[in-house]
Amino acid sequence: MSEYVNPGDLNTWECVNCGVPLVIGKIQIAYLGSAYPVDLLKCPSCGLVFIPEELVLGKMAEVEKALEDK
């Protein structure tokens, strides 16, 4: 399993609805029939996820393209 959590983000984010800090947790990321479990920050209470911009523009864009060409 891959972990995509910036140490700097650990104490930065809070879920507004639940009023609690985000923690590292397993999330399924899926596209075109393929799913990948990854470690991301999420709300321990409601599950709201944080995906950082660098991950979206970097690795995630790469995987999207690879899956689209499969």
Partner: peptide, 29 residues
Amino acid sequence: YWVEYVPQGEAYEVFNAYSHRMEIGEGGA
């Protein structure tokens, strides 16, 4: 779509946005 913003009176100031097509399996703790 992800949007970074703050309310400004009746309106919102937008600082950044990014997007992806992969789907997030959300919900549950």
